[in-house]
Design a protein around this nucleic acid. Sequence first.
DNA 1: CGCCCTCTTGACTGGTCGGTCAACTAGGTC
DNA 2: GACCTAGTTGACCGACCAGTCAAGAGGGCG
Lengths: 186, 186
Amino acid sequence: MVVSRERIVRSAAKMFLTRSYASVGISDLCTAADVHKGSFYHFFASKAELAKAVVDLHAAEFDRRFAEAKGLYAVAGAVADVQGAFEEKFGRIVGCPFGNLAAELSTTDDELRVHVAAVFDRWEKRLVAACEQAPLRDGVEPEQLARMILAQIQGQILIAKVRLRPATEIAAGIRALISANLKEPG
Amino acid sequence: MVVSRERIVRSAAKMFLTRSYASVGISDLCTAADVHKGSFYHFFASKAELAKAVVDLHAAEFDRRFAEAKGLYAVAGAVADVQGAFEEKFGRIVGCPFGNLAAELSTTDDELRVHVAAVFDRWEKRLVAACEQAPLRDGVEPEQLARMILAQIQGQILIAKVRLRPATEIAAGIRALISANLKEPG
DNA sequence: CGCCCTCTTGACTGGTCGGTCAACTAGGTC
DNA sequence: GACCTAGTTGACCGACCAGTCAAGAGGGCG
């Protein structure tokens, strides 16, 4: 059934977020997903392949949320919503699913690195589009601002994770960056 | 001798940067540091203790660099210098030593998380001081801007690592953030 | 019924992991 | 010389790791 594969990916997504990639063993994972080892390797050639599938799962979820968000501030809101949902589910900020995996694996698993890079590229493109439609202050380039917003999102999330700060603080930082670059801070 | 302990920490710092914490085994490490396992455990109670020592090593290096940097733009320059040095040494952006370890371990090793959080706190305090002496645009709070700069640094480094971009791009993002919040962009 | 195919089961493997240990060396001190 | 301490050596440990595999279950289809 499709169900088993999905259970595996969803369990992995949860466990990679609350622990880390390396600290989750295939056996742990199979127990959590109520699946046996052989089944796991029926669906995935390796643990690394699973990581890519987890990225795809999160990317699909993010795509859905971002499609609804119109305007720069809505992007900040979408990030805050997602992080807030994680916070509620896990009791703390657990980091960005992409950023976490990228930070841990991008030096050792180039395929995953490229996979995450593609997510960031798509994300940035959408930000550029939103920037182009916003009333930016003179001299502010949409591409430059989009990259700054993406970095701000990743940085705020990482710092909130390390400091155990609430998701609301993440959103505040992103909004402040946006308003600093608009003609009429809204 | 003191030399052995130092060789271990320096090797670990290098290997954690170019690979990751989990992917470096104690045996790998001992080989690289030309030390035997027993010696390692003479100096460190566990691998986790080593991680803290590595953070301390990097923190000392950063403190030295930052002490010289006067003014907000100098901070951006200091970050660029450090990342540029890593880039030259390793042939690519390998990430922030603190951010990398924090991202990988802060959910599973609370002591390390606190250790890195302290580094960020000190770093931020210095940024606040620099912001207070800078001609900020009206309505910009030094504390808020300092947190944004810290997040921008971490985010830019992480994204550069994932995308394999040069260190110069990191500096550009940080400088753009600063100039967007100054009265007279320099 | 027999055949195929997808999915499942769980025992198994070889290797690596972090960590332990008892024996040893080398200086310093009295 | 006797003793202490700091550092070194490398064999050793049990646990766990990612990954394998042969056997089977069960549904669809002729």
